[in-house]
Design a protein around this nucleic acid. Structure first.
Ligand SMILES: [Zn+2]
Ligand SMILES: [Zn+2]
Ligand SMILES: [Zn+2]
Ligand SMILES: [Zn+2]
Lengths: 163, 163
DNA sequence: GCAAAGTTTGCAACATTATAACATTTGCAG
DNA sequence: CTGCAAATGTTATAATGTTGCAAACTTTGC
C-alpha cells in the first residue's frame, strides 16, 4: 500500500481526496452499500482538509453550492459513513474527519493540534495493546475506544503566537 | 492512602461521597479556591453515583430541590470543578463524573459500561507511556489526553438482556 | 468600619449540536 | 408495471452549551 503523506506539511492533497473517494467506492461496492451522491459529496467535503468538520459546517457548504439540505440529511450521511468506517467522529470536538485507514481493521489514535486544527490519525499497536491489557486487568470487555490527544503538532511548536 | 472500592459492586457509597467532599475542601483550601455552596452541591450531585451526570440533569436536580438555577450556574460550577481537577468531562457522553484521583497528578482512562452506565477511572502508567511515546514518535507535543473505553463491565457481562 | 475592587451568582437571550416524526421520492425485484 | 424497501425531504423540536450584563457577595486596603 502507498505510504500516506503527513498532513502537516504541503502535499498533494488532491491525491488524499481521490484516494479516499476511490477507496470508499471500493468498500461500498464490496459491501453492497450505496454510496449515493449526497453521501459521496459529504465524504468529499470532510476530506477537503485534514481538519475535522462539524455537521453544520457541512450543511453550510452544501447550502452554498445550491443543495439546500436540512440537518437530518447531513447526519444521515454521516451515520452511513461512520457505519462503513469511512469517517470518524472526534468526540472532543463534535466534528468528523475522514478515516485514514478505511477498509483496514484498526483502532485509532487521533493527534489533534489545538493551534492549526490538523488531525493525524494513527493506528499504533503498542497503545492499543496497553489499553486492552489495562481493561483486561479490570475484567472489562472492550467494545470501543475513544482516544483523542490534544496538543501541538510539529509545525505549530515554537510558533506560539508571538508573531 | 485508603484503597478505593470498585464501583460495580455494592459498597459503602456514602464513604465515596464524603471522602470526595473532604478531599475537595482540602484541595480548595490549599489552592485558595472558594468551594462555594453551589459548587459543593454540584460536586455532591455528581458523586451521587458512579455514573456520569449531564449538565442538564444537574440543573434538573437543583431545580427539584428548590434552587431554580439557569444553565450558566451549572456550567460555571462545572468549569470550576474541572479547573481544580475535582471532576472530569466524559466527551463521548457529554457528561461529568467525579475524579477518583483528585489532588494526584494523573492521566485518566475511563472504562464506561454501556449497560449499567457505571464508569471506572484508572490511571495506568503503561497506557500513558505508550500514548506519550507514540506521540513523541510523531514529534507531537501532548497537552491533553481523552481516553474513554466503552464496553461491558464485569457485572454486566453474561447478563446481555436475554431475560 | 468602609469604600473600592474583584469574584461569584442571577438572569435573559441566544448559539450550536442532534434527533423525532412523517411525507415523498428513488431504486430495485418480481 | 407494481409493490416494497431504502433513501431523502421537511418541519419541528430536543439536548447541550455560551454570551452579556446586572446584582450580590467577598476580600482587601485603609
Ligand atoms: Zn492531504
Ligand atoms: Zn498544528
Ligand atoms: Zn461509591
Ligand atoms: Zn455494567
Amino acid at each position: 500500500m502507498p505510504e500516506r503523506a503527513l498532513p502537516y506539511r504541503p502535499h498533494n492533497h488532491e491525491a488524499c481526496v481521490s484516494q479516499a473517494l476511490t477507496d470508499a467506492q471500493d468498500i461500498c461496492r464490496q459491501q453492497n452499500a450505496r454510496l449515493t451522491p449526497i453521501r459521496e459529496r459529504v465524504l468529499e467535503l470532510i476530506w477537503q482538509s485534514h481538519k475535522p468538520l462539524g455537521a453544520y459546517d457541512i450543511l453550510a457548504q452544501l447550502g452554498a453550492e445550491g443543495h439546500k439540505a436540512a440537518p437530518p440529511t447531513v447526519y444521515r450521511a454521516l451515520d452511513f459513513l461512520l457505519q462503513y468506517g469511512l469517517v470518524h467522529r472526534i468526540s472532543s470536538l463534535n466534528a468528523f474527519i475522514g478515516c485514514a485507514h478505511a477498509g483496514e481493521h484498526h483502532r485509532s489514535t487521533f493527534l489533534i493540534c489545538r493551534e492549526c486544527g490538523i488531525v493525524l490519525e494513527l493506528a499504533v499497536d503498542t497503545v492499543t495493546n496497553a489499553i486492552e491489557s489495562a481493561a483486561k486487568a479490570e475484567a472489562f470487555q472492550v467494545e470501543d475506544i475513544t482516544l483523542e490527544i490534544s496538543g501541538l503538532c510539529p509545525s505549530c511548536q515554537g510558533s506560539t503566537s508571538h508573531a
